[in-house]
Amino acid sequence: MKKHSKPKVAFFDFTDCEGCQLQFANMGSALLELTELVDIVNFREIMSEAGEDYEVAFIEGSITTDNDVKRIKRIREKAKAIISLGACATIGGVNGIKNRSPLELAKQRVYGDKADTVNTIKTMPVHEVVKVDYFINGCPVYIPEVISVVKCVLMGKPYIVPNYAVCVECKMNENVCRYEKDQECLGPVTRAGCNSWCINYGNKCYGCRGLVDNPASAGQKDILLKYGITLDDILQRFTLYNDSMGEKYDKDLKQ
């Protein structure tokens, strides 16, 4: 196969905790292998010099100000491929909680008497503002999936994010289900792709990858109600990472 010219890759962060970029820094040897394939020109967490010439842009974080909107549009003009990295960029993430109350109220709560000086808009995942070519869900992202996506980018192939439940991977790993131990878990409605990461380590699924396209809201609600979880709590669980879907689930769950 003809040698690929190394594409230049840049990382940009918006509203987030930078934990997903940190996952890259934590990759260890895989990161070195990746740098064989791509040229990282802008990555604040592991290098100091900033390059402004790039073909592939990893976007971390959600869009929450007018300035963010302008900035992401400029990046879109320049980048051949945009990759949304992590829950904030792909589905809005925890920042989406802001959308649950009127913007003015949210500003008041956070900034008090300085609220007027703050420019903020509702929280949006990146694809609500510009076209996104690849999605890497998760809070934080799961490194093996990151590598799969990078390979797809280099081969010019689409990456299909799984549209089945975390349970599918969880069962392949032969975990003892949380429900078998009288604990609840959001695995049945959450989009797979993390190899049931949290359950493998004894935790439960919190739904950080967002819900599958067509979650069984009614069925899941019945299951959780049996665990003594109130309807409001169920809604909060469904939307912890994905508030842009808040209204839909509000309707689905309360019917």
Partner: peptide
């Protein structure tokens, strides 16, 4: 169908 959440556990096991 109303109760099933399509988790795929029943087919995996």
């Amino acid at each position: 169908g109303r109760r099933c959440v399509a988790c795929g556990n029943c087919t995996a096991v």
